[in-house]
Design a protein around this nucleic acid. Structure first.
Lengths: 357, 357
DNA sequence: CCGGCGTATGTTACCGATAACATTACACGA
DNA sequence: TCGTGTAATGTTATCGGTAACATACGCCGG
């Protein structure tokens, strides 16, 4: 192995600069203004330019002004990839959600992205669908980008992934669900409790017959289980049930109600796993001449726009998805910047009684 | 603080390696396995590891196997930030949309993100709201991350931004609108034509009185203008109109109908700027005892789930947002990878006549 | 008038990968 | 036998910033 160690230092300063200019001219894009160009124009060292951009209070007024003028004149735009490599902070968050084509997840994503943007972070979006394997793969893939933090949906992770996340020491916030031992930060609520609360609500309304239309996804399943358990606790049982695909649609709700319509008791309380499902059930109930809420009481989940915009406005469970996104951003930022401990924030949910119960 | 005063270049090779190991242990995260670690374990040069990952066909079978085993054993995960800096390809796309809290934009975003993911690209999401200034700022901010491509919504850009984008040579795809001179690639449709087509559709149905509820956003405004112009072309005029906030909601549609209900002609054709608005109008019409479609014909825009899930299912303009996202991804990838020319893809729209016209 | 200290700025050595070029090993035809 | 082309692998020099350390300078009290 030849000893070339000293080669770079052997080059005279001027020659190095010429080589540098040639390389820039020959290969890079024309508009590739870099920090050295700004520094040269302003008559300062590159580090000073970096300071003007990142820690302005460590630079004197006049110098900062000259640098800013140079930045302006050249249209300089810092390269965050280079900065990220050097500083080991990418100023980027990866978010993995099942889908954004549902108010369930696009509300928190919207506020999360906004709040992160204000703090100077960008959000990288990955969609996992509803399979755990896909989520695992997405997590591994985004980690290669060295995000400063991670937003995940739900709180059920495979042990391998939990270990990976734990070892990496990356701040993680899990939203929209809860678990006894979250990976790191958690901002969510207990879906089984939601189901239980809806059951109590129905029972308090004098109901004795229950039905449920529930999507085939882990959180909807938890709500269903909570509902069924609480009914059992009251000494009652489910009289009709249908499992729907995830994510489920209005049409799924309609189909679900059609399927169970024949077997409906004279007075039944129906819990839908989302407001879309509940709306579908309401639409179909009307077609079947089923009186709501006389013969059929309906409660949805999510407090989507449609639940209060529809006539009849329907009862639903309100969870403030936007708030979850905001809080998730806030807690994650705190964890990234300071050294706060893992935290488990339970956001409230609330049954909004409207005209269908 | 460790003593780092001795210049690494003065050190003998072995000593330098020891120092390097020490530095890694002392400063970086425990799991910071890098390409040199893998190379050392596999007994090859780092470049060979890089080839195994990026151009496997340039590495012999046995060597590749050894490298893969080392990667597996160490749990190596390449650092795409470093790779991006070196190769000047970030394998990342920035997407700027007004909001994802609407099927209008989350449908294309979903398919775009999926398609990009398959091709090994991640999507960075930025939300611009409905103001041009905000979009400009977002564009400048994301460019600092050196994305390999850009997805923008709409086709109206300030001259400064157009110049910036053009000079940067970055592949750009604009979706969901059209313009005579798009920035680069465009995948969209003509909103004025949509408005015109809806007007023609109504006129063909024998309508002579028209109303419109339209959101205060550039594309909704274009649809409105197309509608109004075509009506005028038929020698007719708008008899009622309401401008709604953007993005507009079911409640906005209800409020809009309430506002114009009094001034409605015996038989009026109403164009809503989205299906949410149209749905709101339908809900309110029923409350007012207005017969649909007898007294009031309604056409929405977007073919959201609710337009066919509702009873009555309502007439709307179908635009395949998912398809726009897919095509945008495909064209953008082609432009990034090959040298295809700018392209302007107009996707079809279609009036879906249902039970409200 | 000098030592010491804080502020503003400069210098150096990386961050972790890859492009471009260099080298080695071998097969094969003249 | 030997040049020569090709496949496989190694070496070097960055990519464009920033952390950490070094230095220059002015100001203060003793």
């Amino acid at each position: 192995m030849p000893d070339r160690t000293r080669a770079p230092l052997a080059m005279p300063q001027a020659a190095a600069q010429i080589a540098d200019v040639a390389a820039t001219a020959g290969r890079a894009k024309p508009t590739a203004v870099k920090i050295t160009d700004v520094a040269a124009l302003a008559g300062v060292a590159p580090m000073t330019v970096s300071r003007v951009l990142n820690t302005p209070d460590r630079v004197s007024g006049p110098t900062a002004a000259r640098v800013r003028a140079a930045i302006e004149q050249l249209g300089y735009m810092p390269n965050l990839i280079a900065g990220g490599l050097s500083s080991r902070r990418s100023r980027m968050i990866a978010a993995i959600v099942p889908t954004i084509a549902s108010p369930m997840f696009n509300a928190p994503m919207q506020t999360f992205t906004d709040a992160m943007g204000v703090a100077g972070y960008h959000v990288m979006l990955a969609l996992s669908g509803y399979t755990e394997d896909s989520e695992d793969a997405q997590i591994r893939a985004v980690l290669a980008r060295r995000p400063d933090g991670l937003l995940l949906t739900g709180a059920r992770r495979s042990p391998a992934i939990r270990r990976l996340l734990h070892d990496s020491g990356l701040p993680v916030v899990e939203i929209w669900d809860t678990a006894p031992e979250p990976t790191d930060i958690l901002v969510g609520f207990d879906h089984a409790e939601v189901g239980g609360a809806v059951a109590d609500f129905f029972v308090a309304g004098g109901h004795t017959h229950f039905a449920i239309l529930s999507a085939r996804d882990p959180r909807a399943a938890a709500r269903r289980q909570g509902f069924v358990d609480r009914i059992a606790h009251h000494g009652l049982t489910l009289s009709a049930e249908r499992v729907l695909p995830a994510p489920s649609s209005i049409e799924d709700g309609r189909q679900g109600l059609r399927d169970i319509a024949a077997s409906l008791a004279p007075r039944t309380a129906l819990f839908g796993s989302s407001d879309l499902v509940a709306f579908g059930a309401l639409v179909e109930a009307k077609l079947h001449g089923i009186d709501v809420p006389g013969q059929l009481a309906v409660c949805g989940f999510g407090d989507f726009e449609i639940s209060r915009g529809n006539v009849p406005a329907f009862t639903t469970v309100r969870v403030d998805g936007a708030e979850i996104g905001r809080v998730a951003a806030e807690k994650l930022l705190a964890r990234i910047q300071g050294n706060t401990a893992p935290e488990r924030v339970l956001v409230p949910f609330e049954i909004i009684a409207r005209d269908t119960t």
